[in-house]
């Protein structure tokens, strides 16, 4: 899952980025309004964590403009705590609203929730036969036995599971698994696919030659 974090306080931005990366997210960041809007418009992020009070362009304005083009899940993370602020934020099209200072675990849970919702997944545990992908614990089990996965491997499994039943291209996987700091390595996706196949079983991911990958039916 690739997320965009927009926050003008450098210390907070640093912390958020680090925390989300440790959770297996690919993280892009912006500390100023115009840059944030450009990024949000350019990439189909899985979610955006958006501050409201930003230099040059406010978070509200970014969201307003974004909603004319994209339905990316957006979570407002702001110090504006009045009911009016929260109501107007949500009514602008935000998917969630969290007031600073916040609890890291709550932010992560809310982020997971809005991403699930955007993929129309209600149950945090996604099942494929004997495989169970627990998106809350970020744990994959096979016949109730946990399978050891790296953060990125898990992220790939989760991404494919969320997109179950739909064809997923290699570019899509690449875009959603790695942030902009990664140099493009075309075979990186294939490497990760083969790794999860060896850990979860060959049948988990089907390959459509020249088109992409498919999980489920």
């Amino acid at each position: 899952m690739r997320v965009l974090v927009v926050e003008d306080d450098p210390d907070l931005l640093l912390g958020l980025t680090q925390a989300l990366r440790e959770e297996g997210y690919a993280v892009d960041h912006a500390s100023e309004g115009n840059e944030a809007l450009a990024r949000a418009m350019a990439w189909p992020y899985d979610a955006i964590v958006l501050d409201i009070m930003l230099p040059n362009l406010s978070g509200r304005e970014i969201l307003r403009q974004l909603r004319t083009k994209q339905s990316t899940p957006v979570l407002f993370l702001t110090a504006l705590d009045t009911v009016d602020d929260r109501v107007s934020g949500l009514d602008l099209g935000a998917d969630d609203y969290l007031v600073k200072p916040f609890d890291l675990s709550e932010l992560l849970a809310r982020l997971r929730a809005i991403i699930r919702r955007s993929h129309e997944v209600a149950d945090p545990i996604i099942r494929f036969g004997d495989l169970a992908i627990n998106t809350t614990a970020r744990l994959v089990t096979k016949d109730n036995e946990p399978i050891e996965l790296t953060a990125r491997e898990y992220a790939l499994v989760e991404l494919l599971a969320m997109k179950r039943g739909r064809l997923v291209t290699r570019t899509f996987i690449y875009d959603h698994l790695f942030d902009e700091n990664h140099d493009s390595m075309s075979n990186l996706v294939d490497v990760y696919i083969s790794r999860i196949r060896s850990k979860l079983g060959k049948d988990f991911v089907k390959t459509r030659r020249g088109e992409g990958y498919l999980v489920g039916n």
Binding site: L12, G15, Q18, A19, A79, K100, P101, F102, D103, S105
Partner: peptide
């Protein structure tokens, strides 16, 4: 509200980094 807002950001920073440091 301005004053509390001004306090919220540094509080968030501290909270964020402390939780991150303690997470593992």
């Amino acid at each position: 509200s301005d004053a509390s807002h001004e306090l919220r950001t540094p509080l968030s920073v501290m909270n964020m980094h402390q939780q991150l440091a303690l997470s593992k």
